[in-house]
Design a protein around this nucleic acid. Structure first.
Length: 156
DNA sequence: GCCAACGTTGGC
DNA sequence: GCCAACGTTGGC
């Protein structure tokens, strides 16, 4: 099942794409703005070195586009305290921050994006959280067999 | 504790 | 732009 070493994170490329990550200072960024408890809890489970599938949502086409890795474990997301930020949370206390972020670093971009359509047609991936009807989780675990299968697809 | 209303996500 | 699915909020 979930080994807690593999994850998938969604981002809208119009907001932050894998190219943006590759161009970031140190090819590293903080993953802010997660405001869903389940997604947050998964981020709290992340360890340095864990690997992450980078998924482009609201994209044409939606696809897994590459790999990143965790370089810093969960710490308070500063945007929750910033009144001017879109993700400001007035209910969160400095002494007890509600939301976390992690830092991730670019690893590589797949030669060809693995589209949602292509993933859906693959029987080996039918249990992936990403592909479940109505699934909107922006941070989710990936099993080691799913991970291996996806990397294999990415090599073709 | 229920559930209607609302806001968001994200594929299409 | 539409809308189904989902999560959260708040009145009761």
């Amino acid at each position: 099942m979930f080994s807690k070493n593999y994850w998938l994170m969604k981002s809208e490329p119009s907001t932050f794409s894998i190219d943006d990550l590759a161009r970031s200072p140190g090819q590293t960024t903080y993953w802010d703005g997660v405001r869903n408890y389940q997604a947050r809890n998964f981020m709290r489970d992340m360890a340095v070195g864990d690997q992450v599938l980078f998924y482009h949502s609201n994209a044409e086409p939606p696809a897994i586009v590459g790999i990143a890795k965790v370089v810093r474990t969960a710490y308070p997301d500063s945007t929750q305290f910033d009144k001017k930020d879109k993700h400001y949370d007035p209910a969160s206390k400095l002494s007890e921050p509600r939301w976390n972020m992690v830092d991730i670093k670019y690893v590589r971009t797949f030669p060809k994006p693995l589209t949602l359509d292509e993933l859906r047609r693959d029987p080996a991936l039918k249990e992936m959280i990403l592909l479940k009807k109505g699934s909107r989780l922006s941070v989710q675990p990936v099993t080691s067999s799913e991970w291996k299968h996806i990397l294999h697809l990415a090599e073709d």
